[in-house]
Design a protein around this nucleic acid. Structure first.
Lengths: 209, 209
DNA sequence: ACCTGAACACCGTTCAAGT
DNA sequence: ACCTGAACACCGTTCAAGT
């Protein structure tokens, strides 16, 4: 399983094929089917590996009394691990069943909220509202577009865009997007991620009353 | 392109292959490559089709003065369209570049916030915080697990789960999950979705001051 | 118990060739 | 201008056969 994680880390998710994985292990592709039912099981296992890593990282957080700080620290610890395995969030999303190690993570989240004074109904809503953010990532809808202006056409293009999408254009112009520390996709840097969870956590605190 | 949308609607995203699509059009698979550079372009086109549908639905919303009500109505209109095309959210997430019709949608979102009194910096944060919810969906992390209890083992299983994941177990027990009107994945019904956007919209309103 | 080779049914895509 | 057949380089997976 660690071979699968390493392969995906090194060569990308597309390179994680049964044939490549077998080669990594110095064996023929068909041998894998003796140990594992199929590729989905390999992906399940890779996710489980990453979730163990996350739970380990979470376990090293010292006790935090305030529920909001505790949850925030937990989520950011998970995120730190996911940044090491950029393929993991996509695979996690694609899993059809929840794995034991993922349950362990969520159980910790729920524990924090419960001991923080939430009732289970609000916790349930909270889990939905947090969505994938509870696990440390938020899938950005669009990656950075590498097809930048080609010099000649670009000014015309920009003018056409400004005419058709005036608000979007104005926002992009005003917000400096040249911050290069992009991590998990377009603009999804630490600042934006933290803004999102804090907005949600603050809102939940108010609902708790 | 409508053939691609229909095929995905009817047979699922996995059935949307170049060969199947060609058959749908009464033609050989290789003929498609005369009209389109490759499969990615087909998926781009299918997304664009859906986005046109969304923008049409959004266009039929009457003028709403309150920015929060206006944005809420827009997002829920988009969601109504996406519920007709269950594959669309996954494909939208997988697109690498933002399409013109998607830009048109976002431009409308930004317009609502801008005329509602937000500055562009806060709008930018807001777009990130909303994430895919701005488009009417929130990818749930796990689908319903069809492998329910098999009668015999299930009580032992539940006890083991209760021991290992006490908080999760207690939450599931307390929150009635037997509500059958699940839509886009596990528990992602209208109630939970609306809870999430309202939490975010209320939070944004407070930040606006 | 563990691994292998050959084969099957699929993909997306290229390319020379047809009308 | 539009379509096709044959072929290529890949997938995941099955299955009988090896040690």
């Amino acid at each position: 399983m660690t071979a699968a994680v390493n392969l995906a880390d090194r060569d990308g998710l597309d390179s994680l094929t049964m044939r490549n994985l077998a080669q990594e292990l110095g064996v023929e592709a068909m041998s894998l089917y003796y140990h594992v039912p199929g590729k989905e099981a390999v992906l399940d296992g890779a996710v489980e590996s990453v979730m163990v890593e996350i739970n380990d990282a979470v376990g090293e957080i010292g006790a935090v009394s305030d529920w909001k700080e505790a949850l925030r620290a937990r989520i950011l610890a998970a995120r730190r691990v996911l940044l090491i395995h950029p393929w993991a969030s996509r695979v996690i999303e694609s899993r059809t069943a929840i794995s034991p190690e993922t349950m362990r993570y969520y159980d910790g989240v729920i524990q924090i909220l419960r001991t923080g004074g939430f009732d289970y109904d609000l916790i349930h809503h909270a889990m939905h509202a947090l969505g994938s953010r509870a696990l440390g990532f938020s899938q950005e809808l669009f990656e950075p577009d590498d097809t930048d202006g080609e010099g000649d056409e670009s000014t015309d293009m920009l003018e056409a865009m400004a005419a058709e999408f005036p608000y979007l254009t104005e926002m992009v112009a005003e917000v400096s997007h040249d911050d290069p520390d992009t991590t998990l996709g377009w603009c999804d840097d630490q600042t934006e991620f933290v803004f999102g969870i804090d907005l949600l956590l603050d809102g939940l605190e108010r609902l708790k009353g």
